[in-house]
Amino acid sequence: MSVAALIVAAGRGSRAGEGIPKQYRFVGGKPVLALTLEAFLRHPGIERTLAVIHPDDQDLYRKSIAALPDELTGRLLPVAHGGETRQDSVRNGLETLLEFAPAHVLIHDAARPFAAGALIGRALEATENWEAAVPGIAVTDTIKVIGPQSEVVSTPDRASLRAVQTPQVFHFAALLAAHRKAAAAGLRNFTDDGALAEWAGLSVHVFQGDPLNIKLTHASDFPEAERRLKGSSMTYVTRLGTGFDVHAFGDGDHVWLGGIRVPHDRGVVAHSDGDVILHALTDALLGALADGDIGTHFPPSDPQWRGASSDQFLAYAAALVRDRGGLIDHLDATLLCERPRLGPYREAMRQRIAELAGLRLDQVSLKATTTEKLGFTGRSEGIAAQAAATIRLPEVSA
């Protein structure tokens, strides 16, 4: 019976940091999407493979499939375009596949490039007895269900829990009908097709997943994926960089700190928005790369940076680390001032910094101190920040 694979590649991947969508970033010398497509195009049980991409990504997609062996591209169908949500994208792909009327369809995330042939085989075997099946792996951590005040409501038995992956496999007609039913009901935010199938009343089976079938979600996932593809011989060197920034107070009613607008009775005198925390963190990353400072990359003499948001400076520096195959381990910043107080805004700043750099929240530290009324910060004449960044870069032989 005919089987088609539908690769969902329309997402923006914002948790992986700034830059091109994660499915088009290179790992092991190839775009992630090319690695994912190749796994399904090479499997003898897959007759056709279709990618669903964002309409703006046509050039990135063409460059990705150019990395595929010529003998495989003949089994690759013309793309379908994604929608506003993952669910919309899958439905668009299914409607495109309707012309070929496959008996079964495998739905797989483009950001999972390590789908082994054995895993795809287990998915295909599940179609013999089930109308819907998803791969799952046993949960090793204890899981807590919490309430609105973060209080523990219950602790489910982890023996009955599974972390679900893709590829997920379905009878094609049944899944298409379920998607159409959900769309007609105005339900558009199912995060996986197994959940949508459950809602539609299909019987969903869980087969054995693969712990190595990881999803590339955060920027820190890419160096590990690189290591897996290049083998254990690849080594990394740790680099530490520091940064410092200062701005004088001037007229205004707010300051920008850590990417957050903080109300204050003064503003700062600066060419950009004067965010001393983001400027110091940017310099720390550039220092760890031995790649100049913020003025080198964003010269104050250039009018395009007048009043510019410092968000783009930190995102740019983090992208430079990723472009060199590196990993940001930790960012640490200290604000030096008498006022404003950091406390009410600390967590929002940490979250914003993590988003800009493509990190988890626990990889960002933010502190504040006064200078005991000493110096220009003690006299409330200005504000300053110092920062440190720890990164890892692939070790290059001399």
Rank of each mutant, 00 (worst) to 15 (best):
R12G: 11
I20N: 08
V27T: 08
A34W: 00
E38S: 11
F40R: 07
G45W: 09
P55Y: 12
D57K: 02
S64A: 15
R75D: 14
Q87F: 13
F100P: 04
A101G: 04
E125W: 12
A126M: 12
V134A: 15
P135N: 09
A138F: 10
T140E: 13
T142Q: 14
I143Q: 14
T166F: 00
P167C: 04
A174M: 07
H179S: 07
R180Y: 08
A182V: 08
G186D: 09
N189I: 09
G201R: 02
H205P: 00
P211T: 10
A219M: 13
P223Y: 01
R227F: 11
L229A: 03
L229S: 04
G231V: 15
L240G: 00
G243I: 07
F244D: 13
F244R: 15
F249E: 02
R261E: 11
V262G: 00
R266S: 04
H271F: 13
D273F: 00
H279W: 05
D293N: 11
G295M: 08
Q304Y: 06
R306K: 12
Q312H: 06
Y316K: 11
R322F: 11
H330S: 13
L336M: 15
L336T: 13
E338Q: 14
E338W: 01
R352G: 09
R352V: 03
I353G: 10
S365L: 13
A368F: 05
F376T: 02
S380W: 07
G382H: 07
V396P: 01
